[in-house]
Design a protein around this nucleic acid. Sequence first.
DNA 1: TTCAATTTGTTGGTTAAACAACATATATAA
DNA 2: TTATATATGTTGTTTAACCAACAAATTGAA
Lengths: 196, 196
Amino acid sequence: MKEDRRIIRSRKVITEAFVSLLKEKGFPDISVADLTEHAEINRSTFYAHYKDKFDLLHAVIEEKLTSLSEELEASRVSDSVLSNTIDSPHPYFVTLFDHLQTHAGFYTIMFKRIEDSAVRSRMQEVIRESQFIIISHFKLEQKMLIPMDILLDYLCSSIIGVVEKWYDNGMKYSANYMALQLTRISMLGTDKAMGL
Amino acid sequence: MKEDRRIIRSRKVITEAFVSLLKEKGFPDISVADLTEHAEINRSTFYAHYKDKFDLLHAVIEEKLTSLSEELEASRVSDSVLSNTIDSPHPYFVTLFDHLQTHAGFYTIMFKRIEDSAVRSRMQEVIRESQFIIISHFKLEQKMLIPMDILLDYLCSSIIGVVEKWYDNGMKYSANYMALQLTRISMLGTDKAMGL
DNA sequence: TTCAATTTGTTGGTTAAACAACATATATAA
DNA sequence: TTATATATGTTGTTTAACCAACAAATTGAA
């Protein structure tokens, strides 16, 4: 079921105007009229697609993170996840940071402008879910030395933490470099990683 | 009578796609399907606005040169055309070259890609007409030492010739510099201009 | 507070864009 | 040549965007 071109275009110009406006002002200061004016569409068209601006915010975040989720899933299928050395970045992390770099404009604005950080928590969910799938797929549950849920909490929050700081510091390191560092920590464990 | 947003947008994306495609291939190699695909609209929408691609070409040229014509007319009204020194560029030429610079992307492509050079001849008409209006307005006809039509032919073809070469050579000189040079030639005459 | 101005959702009628289908025409290759 | 594909216009129907107008809610200043 291909969607009507007009639908695609309307959603596109609305979300573009939204992200663009977030560069100038905070979310509370953006009105629907504001939005549709910049998007050069009629105000009623907005309401045909979204309930209100909160609905739009949610949809925008959801769309971006769904694509991340799909990219992570796609990379899992193609690559053998287990065979990996300490000197090459893990395909999973490469995919992750490639995405984060490609959409850096979007994420930095979102992290900065959306106070309650809906992006952060949603990204954490996506990471957690993808890690869960990897573990499940390789039947690693049986061999695990600690409870799965605790491990998943550890994994996703540590990754998100690193990501957030990476953005905060202006992405000084390359995406590939970041992927390599996370690969090393996860392979060695934090103790070995710090030289113990 | 404000026009429907959809009309504005459709025309806009079509002409943008058209100019964009002319950067890649010649006019004969551009199909309507090509055009609408790049513009991301339905093919039938194209036919709702234009007869065929020749009609589009004509419309695009006409629109741009109408705006030039209007800009020249507007500058005539505001400025006193007669009082001018040899050291400051004439308002008319400033307006002309400002326009040519602003829309350089469009004109260079048109001069280069459209073989029969419909742009050149149309621009010549606009220049000729605007010069005619200036002469008429200041009642200069009576004092003229040579027939008006010959002078107009001389004026518009010399200006167009300089403009075309300016584009050909990659606009090495600034718009303002060009305006100044044409001002000097027209005030001094070619003989004095060359130092006789 | 009160009042005006702005923003918000919603609705109904109108219009242009989308889409699919068609016949025709123009290549391009066998 | 014939055949296959691609491009061109055209048409009828469906659908989404437009617009204007409305009441209700919110905001901001007097």
